[in-house]
Design a protein around this nucleic acid. Structure first.
Lengths: 252, 252
DNA sequence: CGTATTTTTGATTGGAATCAAATTCGGTGG
DNA sequence: CCACCGAATTTGATTCCAATCAAAAATACG
C-alpha cells in the first residue's frame, strides 16, 4: 500500500477530475458533481515518469489501476527466454492495470515510452465507491468490456493479417485514438520505436521498416522518423479491413 | 428483452446454482445462501442448443451473458470478405458475452460446437444484484480481468509462436480447462474440428493436421480423430513456454 | 565530435500457405 | 447392417511472405 500523502503530487481540495481535459474520455458518464468529487478524492496524481521508468512490474501485487494523463506507456511480459513481449500501448485517458484484478498481481509490466504522467486509482477504493455510484460501476464494466473487444480485434489482426495489414491497422488505430482526444487523425508522432512496433505486431523490425517505406512510396503515408502523416486515408482504411467493421460497432 | 417465463426451461423455487456441479467454478466466491438464491432467481436455464445453433449473433443487442453448463461454444466474427474468424472456445463453467457490455451489442456471434446447454444471465439484473452483493461485483470484475489476461496471452501466442507452439498451447490450454472441471488432463475429446483449430490459431488446416501427426510420431501425444491423449506432458509444457509462466501467475 | 543505437536497405533462407489429391469419417437411407 | 455420399482429414509438392543474416546509413546522445 502506498502512502496517500507521500506520493500525492498535486493535492487540492477542489475536484481536479472536473477540470481535467480528459474527464470526458476517462469518465464518459454524467456523474453528479458530488460524485465526481468523491471519485476525485481517491485519485492520486503521481510525479511524472521519465522515459524508461516503470510504473509497475510483472508479478507485483495489484493495488491500483492508472489513467494516463500525458505521454505513453507500454505493457509487456518478459518471456522465459528473456525477451520482451509487448501487449499494449496506452495513450492519454486510457486505463492500464485492469488485468491485475483477477490474480491480484500485475501479469505485465508497464513502462513509460516518453515522459508520462498518470492518475493512480487505488482499486479497492474505486470498487467500494462503485457500490455507491451505480453509473460508475457500469462505467468500469464498460471499460473492461471494451478492453476485451479491443484485445480480440488484436487477436484477429495477429492471427489473420499480413505485414501490410498489421502496420496499417496499428497506424489507423493510433490515428483514431489521437482523433478521439481532439488531435489530428492524419498527422502524429509515434512514441514507440520501430522495434517496439514490430514486437507488438509480431513482425521483425526490418519488416516494419520495409512496410513503412513501401507505404510511403505508394503515397499512402508520409514518414519522417517518428512523425507520421496519413496521406491516403481511404486506401489505408481499406487495408485495415475487418478491424474497421468492428470499430463501427464499438463506436455506436 | 426475452420473457422470463417463456424461455425458462427448468424452473424451481429452490436454488439450482447451489446444486449445480459447476458453481464452484462459475461462482468461486462464498456467497451467503440467501445471496446464492437471489442470484439463482435471475438465471434462466435455457433449452439446450443443438450443434450449429447460434446463441447470439454479431450485431445483436446485448442483453445477457451466458454460462456454459454442458457442451462447447465458439465465438467468431464474420470478416468483410465473408470468412469466419474464431475468437474463442467456451467450455462448461465459462462465461460468454462479456464483450457486449461496452457497445451494448454483441461484437461476435456464439455458436454451439456440439449439443450445449447454457444459463442465461440477464446482465441488467446481474448488475443491479451486484450493487447489493459486493463479493458478486468483485467476482464479475475478476472474471472480466481474467478474460483480459487470457486474451493477452493469446495475443502473445499468435504474435510470437510458431505452428508447433501454437498447437501445443491450445492442447495444453484445453487440458487445463478439463482438469479444472475434474476431468482428465491427459485424455480428452476435441469439440472443434481441425479447421476450427486452424482458424483460431491463425494456421491453415493442413498445418494443424501436419503438426498433430508430427507430435504423434515424436511420442508427444496420441491422436485418434478427435480423441487426444497427452503422452509426454513435460515436453508439451516445454513447447508451450511463456504461456506456462503466466498460467502460474493466474493460478495463484 | 565521436560513439552507440536505431533505422534502413539488400541478399538469402525457411516455415507455413497454397494447390492438389488421396483417404478417412460421419451420417443417411436402403 | 451395409453401401453410399459429402465433409473432414491427411499427405504430398510447390510457392511465397516474412524472418534472418549482413551491412550501411541515419539519428540520438554523452
Amino acid at each position: 500500500m502506498s502512502s496517500l500523502q507521500s506520493t500525492r503530487f498535486n493535492s487540492k481540495l477542489t475536484s481536479q477530475c472536473q477540470s481535467c481535459s480528459l474527464s470526458a474520455l476517462c469518465l464518459p458518464i454524467s456523474l453528479a458533481d458530488e460524485d465526481v468529487n468523491r471519485l476525485d478524492q481517491i485519485i492520486e496524481r503521481k510525479k511524472p515518469l521519465k522515459k524508461g521508468e516503470v510504473l509497475f512490474h510483472q508479478g507485483e501485487e495489484f493495488s491500483s489501476v492508472y489513467a494516463v494523463r500525458t505521454g505513453t506507456l507500454k505493457t509487456f511480459n518478459i518471456t522465459n527466454s528473456g525477451e520482451e513481449q509487448i501487449t499494449g500501448f496506452y495513450c492519454p485517458s486510457e486505463l492500464v492495470g485492469l488485468s491485475g484484478i483477477d490474480s491480484n498481481t500485475y501479469p505485465v509490466s508497464a513502462k513509460a515510452l516518453e515522459t508520462t504522467s498518470v492518475c493512480e486509482i487505488p482499486f479497492s477504493h474505486l470498487e467500494s465507491l462503485s457500490s455507491q455510484i451505480p453509473s460508475l460501476k457500469h462505467q468500469i464494466f464498460k471499460v473492461m468490456s471494451r478492453k476485451i473487444c479491443d484485445d480480440q480485434q488484436m487477436m484477429v489482426l495477429l492471427g489473420k493479417k499480413n505485414a501490410d495489414e498489421k502496420v496499417a491497422s496499428l497506424l489507423m488505430n493510433l490515428s483514431s485514438r489521437f482523433k478521439r482526444r481532439g488531435y489530428s487523425a492524419t498527422s502524429f508522432r509515434l512514441a514507440m520505436s520501430r522495434g517496439e512496433i514490430g514486437n507488438y505486431l509480431g513482425l521483425a523490425v526490418e519488416t516494419v521498416s520495409r512496410v513503412m517505406t513501401r507505404f510511403q512510396k505508394s503515397g499512402l503515408i508520409h514518414v519522417d522518423g517518428k512523425e507520421i502523416a496519413i496521406v491516403n486515408l481511404p486506401e489505408m482504411q481499406k487495408l485495415v479491413g475487418i478491424t474497421e467493421e468492428c470499430a463501427k460497432i464499438e463506436v455506436v
